[in-house]
Amino acid sequence: MVRKKREYTVEDFFKDNKEELGLELLTSSLKGPLNITGSDVHRPAFALSGFMENYLNSRIQIIAETETLFMRSLEPGQMKEAAERIFSKPLCCIMITKNLDLPDVFIDEAERKSVPVLRTPKETTPFIHELTEILDYYFAPRTKLHGSLVDVYGVGLLFTGRSGIGKSEIVLDLVERGHRLVADDVVEILRRGDVVIGRGQEFLKHFMELRGIGIINVMDTYGIRAIRIQKRIEVVVELKDWDPGRDWDRHGLDERYTEILGSRIRQLIIPIFPGKNITVISETIALDHMLKVYGINAAKSLDDKISDWMKSKKRTRRYLRNDTE
């Protein structure tokens, strides 16, 4: 389930990133006509000069050296017209780089349309990169899943399965063996590019419920090295009650995938029955996954060996048959 598209108010954006981006507010209010709705930015140089087609007013407008020089080259009358053109459509905010000064007429127009104008001392290109990074993170697709995420040998394993199947016990056993808990029960997930990252819910982080014991805090109980804030999810391990009638994978030649936020993640279905040591199996899953990342596939190499062996046997037979000595 993907939540509806997020919007970032300029007020929240300013509060969250003021220090990091070195922002100052040049107008009187942070409450503008639009919210920030995406991570793309727009340089309004063409709109300033009068070409209004494809003026992407819903994006953050970045004003830098080129735009400032252009405005300064105008007669006062033209300058006012240029400013009016920029504000002829509703804007979320304007960001000025390199601590540049804009003509007063421009700031006055922004004030009149109550569009917040922010300014940073940063250079334009690095600023845009930093800004995009921050906004990409904010607008990344997100969801929540029921499951437990553990970093096993550096591989993020997401355990899923019906409640009561023993996910928490597996997690605890893995932690005991030196692996690291990311989140138990509720995993918050976000996607950046093809990479799916999981983390714990803000205040539930590293708490666990164990039937019969109650709530424990993994960080307090096992120490800081037993936990991790976030981890890329690389394999989904679905735990299923053992069913002799089910076709369990026996060779692993075909890989199974599941989708999280539209990204393909390898999935394994592991049967569970009393006395089964899922911890060791989980470690093996992580190690085997790493081998596969390095291009080593045990099932394929065994299959190749079988084929080679059958071929060589055929050759030997032919040799012996033709051997009339």
Binding site: R250, H251, L253, L302, D303, M310
Partner: peptide, 10 residues
């Protein structure tokens, strides 16, 4: 034709 390879064994 390919004999009892791994997939078939499976």
């Amino acid at each position: 034709r390919n004999g009892m390879h791994l997939r078939l064994a499976g």
